[in-house]
Design a protein around this nucleic acid. Structure first.
Length: 287
DNA sequence: GCCCAGGCACTCA
DNA sequence: TGAGTGCCTGGG
């Protein structure tokens, strides 16, 4: 992979594993706007970035070299060798070989923990367009204005005095009280999920002390923002695709699916989950 | 108008 | 421990 600064752009070339659409739309991320001709605008870490494919390369703009190195390099997980990950997974079995071939341009984004947590709390029993709208509402209401009508996501501190009724007004529904609880537990220091030395199970336990955070939401936060890539979040799509391919189509308990994933995919379970999710949802496997 | 969506909490056996 | 049920909201 090569990075080059050209004017106000960073141009990434020689990357086999970076499809912008797949990466942004595979379900891990909610803050993007699709523009014309494959271009997207995203908001992350209080910055707005345009990103587009150009002749096999990927362009990020406006973006200085300093910003690229300090923010986007890590956000897009660019120092990781996805070719190696895909090869190792593809060698596991035929299902993974297909899933990897299908969504080979996916990269797992390293998201901000707080925003990721709130986003996946909102995701429960919800549809993606509405999830995106609610997150946008929260940012517009309580975040800081950036450019092009985009707003940064508010910190827990900023949300300190916001009430459940206020969240309800933003159409969060029954999740409003969950968001309020997360804000409170963050601000009081009652839970600390920034302890990077904590084992994954302990970190999951911390997250699940928040009202409205169960195994699925906690696992998403672990993979997408705590870099615990051995975690295997099981949502309805992953459940379906796993039952379809690994359990002869039978209804299977989550614990059994998780056990198989851990045993088979090991440290790469988080990546496997993304490839499988994308594969299942695009092909509507089991739907 | 009904149904259900990338879960979770709560209840009851 | 597991099965069943209700939940805001809005699009099909």
């Amino acid at each position: 992979m090569n990075y080059e600064q050209v004017g106000n752009k960073i141009v990434i070339t020689g990357c086999n594993s970076f499809d912008i659409r797949q990466t942004l739309e595979c379900g891990q991320w909610f803050r993007y706007t699709a523009l014309a001709e494959g271009e997207y605008r995203i908001v992350a870490f209080s910055r707005v970035l345009n990103i587009r494919p150009v002749n096999g390369a990927v362009e990020l703009y406006p973006c200085s070299w300093e910003e690229f190195e300090s923010v986007w390099m890590d956000f897009f997980d660019l120092s990781r060798d996805y070719d190696a990950i895909k090869k190792e997974l593809a060698d596991k079995d035929e299902v993974m070989r297909e899933a990897v071939a299908f969504g080979g341009g996916i990269r797992i984004l390293n998201q901000d923990i707080w925003e990721c947590l709130i986003s996946f709390i909102i995701s429960q029993n919800n549809r993606i367009p509405r999830i995106m709208r609610i997150i946008r509402n929260i940012a517009q209401q309580y975040g800081g204005e950036l450019r092009d009508g985009e707003y940064s996501f508010p910190t827990a501190e900023r949300l300190r005095d916001i009430t459940v009724m206020d969240y309800m007004a933003l159409k969060t529904g029954f999740r409003a009280k969950y968001i309020a609880d997360a804000v409170e537990k963050f601000n009081s220091g009652e839970i600390n999920i920034f302890q990077t030395d904590l084992p994954t199970t302990a970190l999951r336990g911390e997250l699940m002390r928040i009202n409205g955070v169960g195994p699925k939401v906690a696992n998403c936060v672990l993979v997408f923002s705590c870099r615990r890539r051995e975690t295997f979040p099981i949502d309805v799509w992953v459940k379906r695709v796993m039952e379809h391919f690994y359990f002869d189509g039978r209804d299977t308990r989550l614990a059994d699916i998780e056990a198989l994933a851990n045993e088979r995919f090991g440290e790469l379970a988080g990546y496997a989950q993304q490839y499988l999710f994308h594969y299942a949802r695009q092909l509507r496997i089991g739907a």
